[in-house]
């Protein structure tokens, strides 16, 4: 609306930043409370879950194909998956949970989704940073190329955010999305690529696995962690294509949903 009347874009952007900032702080308050160690849970939740999984597999003593370090493999698979699942699962409830805030005209559906998902991203980033330091200091397992891990996490966030916008859009029209999303994220765990590496698979299966966009994310993150120690295969432009398409569709969907939403 603002752009249509010819007003400058910059103030609009400033309002959006202000709104997203306020929403993020509020989200922090509602999710973790304002008492005690409330905010610490933000990082602790993914860290504890990831740590538990890494520890169990470390203690079980099963070696992985290619001699990959067991602890780091499970943790750097689990943390990005936690981000994906967290963002997707919370997508269908995003609008219903924040509907009363839409009474403020300049709070948009995109702002609501952005605030929630950026917070989720910050939580997993914090947890991953903690793990990187832990594995580095304790086991000398420093990431070979940290920038690739950062890129991988950003792409995962972008992918999940785009998909979550579509789920949120769907939730305005049907309750089915809220019901099946959890089931879907749970059942799709084996094919996301969180806990297998592409080079472990037979050639035929490799080609099939590389159709799955998230497989590329996990391979990219592993490349950042292990470098040339293990072969990884991923295609960043392919992944970027998914991220761009999902985000464009998601934003268009939210625009449409806002028009049809009755408060």
């Amino acid at each position: 609306m603002r752009a249509a009347t010819g007003a400058p874009v910059l103030p609009g952007l400033r309002v959006q930043l202000r709104v997203v900032g306020a929403l993020t702080l509020r989200e922090l308050g509602t999710r973790f409370g304002r008492d005690n160690l409330g905010y610490i849970w933000l990082f602790l939740e993914p860290a504890l879950l990831g740590g538990a999984i890494g520890l169990v597999h470390h203690l079980s003593g099963h070696a992985l194909p290619g001699g990959v370090d067991v602890g780091t493999f499970w943790v750097i698979g689990y943390v990005p998956y936690y981000l994906l699942r967290g963002v997707l699962n919370r997508g269908p409830s995003a609008i219903a949970a924040n509907q009363s805030l839409l009474y403020h005209r300049h709070v948009t559906l995109l702002d609501i989704l952005l605030a929630r998902n950026l917070l989720e991203g910050a939580a997993t980033a914090g947890a991953l940073l903690g793990f990187a330091l832990f594995f580095g200091l304790v086991a000398g397992e420093w990431p070979r190329e940290p920038a690739k891990i950062v890129l991988g996490m950003l792409l995962m966030l972008g992918f999940a955010h785009g998909a979550a916008m579509l789920l949120a859009t769907g939730s305005v029209y049907s309750e089915i999305f809220d019901r099946v999303t959890h089931l879907f994220t749970y059942l799709s765990l084996p094919i996301t690529g969180a806990f297998f590496m592409v080079f472990w698979l037979p050639t035929e299966l490799q080609r099939a696995a590389l159709w799955v966009p998230t497989v590329h994310v996990f391979e990219l993150v592993r490349d950042g962690q292990y470098g040339t120690l293990v072969p990884t295969s991923y295609d960043v432009p392919y992944l970027l294509g998914w991220v761009a398409a999902l985000n464009l569709l998601g934003m268009a969907g939210l625009r449409r949903a806002r028009r049809d939403l009755a408060l």
Binding site: R26, S100, Y103, H104
Partner: peptide, 13 residues
């Protein structure tokens, strides 16, 4: 915003 009972506030905070 429309002032009345519902909306505009967040109830859990």
């Amino acid at each position: 915003w429309p002032l009345g009972f519902a909306g505009a506030m967040h109830y859990s905070i």
